[in-house]
Simulated scan of single mutants.
Amino acid sequence: MALRTRWLWFSKTDEHRAWAGLDLQFSTEEQAFFFASTHTSIGNDHNTKFWEDRWINGRSVREIAPLLHACIPKRRRKNRTVAEGLQAHLWARDIHGVLGVHEIGQYLLLWRLLEGIALSAEPDKLIWKWTEAGTYTAKYAYLASFHGSIACNHWKLTWKSWALPKVKLFLWLVSLDRCWTADRLDRHGLQHHTACPLCDQAPETMQHLLLACPFSRQVWHEILSWMRMTCRAPANDSSLLDWWLNAKQDTSQLMRKGLASATLLTSWMIWKHRNDCIFDREQPSDHALVSRIKAKAMLWATAGAAGLRVVLPTSWDVH
């Protein structure tokens, strides 16, 4: 979107581009982002659109008088420039239809705002609000798309830990509740097993499968003990990511990278074991799963997971 917005910027600021004058098509989202990111400093106003652009103290007529704006024919809104509209109050002639009390109020408001506006000999200047210089850059267009987003520490576990890309993607899906556990299958009206395939004691949700299931809790306990972790095993935490944040506080600085990789690995292996039980008719076995996790942890450490090398036993005994 940031790069597409670049085309919008140059279509309004550089008429010498080879594609200038072409009917470029932009999505509603791109146009709305550009509209929110720019305003015009008026000069001679031969290029600024009276009804569409943001030129009245950084606002557009549509923002100031939306009901009045709706009374303007679409063709007139697209073509009327500020210079034309201000000449002998020609903009007032663009209004069509019957005006109600609210429309008349907005008409008077707009009239008062336009009284103090005077054109100059300088050309119009389009200003990009996200930079001090007022000019577009792809970097700041990209950063602007994150305005209003909510910061969250969970991303560090998902994307900053040493793990295979497919394991990171799995944990990302877990955080979005997009894994096909029984509760999600039920919401979509799809065939599903009713109980957790690992413990057969409760309805399967991702929170239950990874944290509350007695089978999984035993696996967590054995793996954390084998890695000499001092944090408690997951219990009834609200989510895996919340458990990790709490466990990190109870873990020494030296072992935290290992804890993060172990969290991803153990979760991933529990999920794989669950799938083996459902699709391959394998019987749940915490002993077999723990052995697989230990073997996989050794492979990860050999492949470059420096954090895991710190927490693994010196002998690297799988059994």
Rank of each mutant, 00 (worst) to 15 (best):
A118Q: 12
K168V: 00
I127S: 04
Y142P: 00
A83S: 13
H147L: 11
C152Q: 06
C152G: 08
H154D: 15
I117G: 04
A144S: 11
H89V: 13
Y140C: 08
R80C: 04
L169N: 14
W172Y: 05
E122Q: 14
Y142T: 04
L109E: 12
V167F: 02
A163L: 03
I127L: 12
L164H: 06
I150R: 14
A92L: 15
A138T: 10
W130S: 15
T137S: 11
R112F: 02
A88V: 10
L108D: 12
N153T: 10
L108K: 14
G97W: 03
Q106E: 15
V167N: 00
S175H: 07
K125I: 14
E122S: 13
T137G: 03
D94R: 01
L173R: 09
D124K: 06
S145Y: 00
P165F: 06
L126P: 00
D177N: 11
I104H: 11
E122V: 12
I150C: 14
H102Q: 15
A141L: 04
S145C: 07
A144C: 09
G148E: 05
L114R: 01
D177T: 03
R80W: 04
T137I: 03
H102A: 15
K166W: 08
L114A: 07
I104K: 12
I95F: 03
G97I: 08
V167L: 00
I95L: 02
L113Q: 13
L157C: 09
D177M: 01
A133C: 13
H89I: 09
S120D: 07
L173S: 03
S149W: 05
L108G: 11
T131E: 08
L126T: 01
V82S: 03
Y142E: 05
K129L: 05
S149M: 09
H147C: 12
I117F: 09
E122K: 13
A118M: 12
W159Y: 11
H154R: 14
A141R: 01
D124G: 01
H147Y: 09
S149I: 05
L119C: 08
D177K: 07
K139T: 03
F146H: 09
H102V: 11
S175Y: 04
D94Q: 00
V82M: 04
G134Y: 02
K160P: 00
L113S: 11
